[in-house]
Design a protein around this nucleic acid. Structure first.
Lengths: 134, 134
DNA sequence: CTCCACCGTCTACACACGTAATCGACTACG
DNA sequence: CGTAGTCGATTACGTGTGTAGACGGTGGAG
C-alpha cells in the first residue's frame, strides 16, 4: 500500500462527498468493481439521471480520490477507494457534533422521542449496551 | 397565527438550512430576538465572519422563512421561525435514512464501535431505554 | 479496411453557498 | 442644518453541485 510517491503524506481528511456523489458511492459499496454503465443501471432509474450524469459524478469522485479506476479493455472499472464505514463515521460524527454538542446521548434521546426507534431497534441497542458493559 | 394570506397552505417541508446559515440559527435558538449586530457578536468571532456576512445570511434565512423580523426603531430584531427540534429532527432523520437505511440501531452500533460513546452517554441511554420500556 | 457504437473527457450552465463590499435611507450628534 | 455613523437591501464573485450534451478515440462488425 501507499505505493504512490505522489502521496504527500498529509492524511487527506476524507474527501467531501456530495449528495449525488454519495448515491454513486453506495452503488460501488454494494458491488464493485463496476462499469459506468452498471453504476447507471443501479442509480439512474431511482434518481432519474442520465448516463452522462453518472460519468460526471464518477470522474469527480476519481479526482477526489474517493474511487479508483482499473482499465478493462477499452473501458474502466470503478471501485471505491474510501471505506463506507469511514464515510459513515465522519458523517455521523459531523451530525452529532453540529447538533448535539458531540454527545451521542441527546441524539439517542431525540430519536426515541420522535418515535424513530422501532421495537427491534430497542432490542438491538439493549444487546449492544450489554456487550459494551462487559 | 397563519395570519399571512400568502401562505399557500402547502406545509413547506422545512426550508433547507445551509451550514453557515445553521450557525446563525443556533445563535437565535440560544437567545432571541437579536439584532444583526448581536448575532454577529455570537458567531463572527468563532467563524471569522464580518458583519456583512451575517446580514446576508440573515436575509437569506428570512427569504427561506426560517427566521422572522420585527422592526425595532430603525433596525430589525430577528427571531427563529423554525423550531430547533424540528431542524434537529429532520437532519437526524435524513442521516439515518441516507446512511443506515432508516434504522437507528445501526447508527447506534456505529457510534458504539467508533468509541463515540462516553460513559455518561451509556448511562443516560440505559436510563432512556428503561423509560421507553415502561 | 471502414464505419459505427461506445467509452471517457471536456465543456456547459444554472443555481446554491460562502463571503463580503457598496449603496441609499435615516438618525443622532454637533 | 449638515454630516457621520448605522441599518437593511442590493450587488458581486468565486467555487461547488446537479445535470447533461458534445467531442475525439478506438475496437469490433462487416
Amino acid at each position: 500500500m501507499s505505493v504512490n510517491p505522489d502521496d504527500d503524506g498529509s492524511d487527506r481528511a476524507a474527501p467531501e462527498i456530495s449528495g449525488a456523489e454519495h448515491a454513486v458511492m453506495e452503488a460501488l459499496w454494494q458491488r464493485s468493481p463496476l462499469t459506468a454503465q452498471e453504476v447507471c443501471e443501479e442509480v439512474c432509474g431511482p434518481r432519474g439521471w442520465s448516463l452522462a450524469t453518472v460519468k460526471t459524478l464518477l470522474s469527480r469522485l476519481v479526482v477526489k480520490q474517493a474511487v479508483e479506476t482499473e482499465p478493462d479493455g477499452k473501458r474502466f472499472l470503478y471501485s471505491p477507494l474510501m471505506e463506507r464505514s469511514d464515510y459513515v463515521g465522519t458523517e455521523s460524527r459531523r451530525l452529532v457534533d453540529r447538533l448535539f454538542g458531540g454527545r451521542a446521548a441527546p441524539l439517542f434521546a431525540h430519536l426515541a422521542q420522535s418515535e424513530a426507534l422501532t421495537e427491534d431497534d430497542i432490542v438491538e441497542i439493549e444487546a449492544l449496551l450489554k456487550e459494551l458493559k462487559s
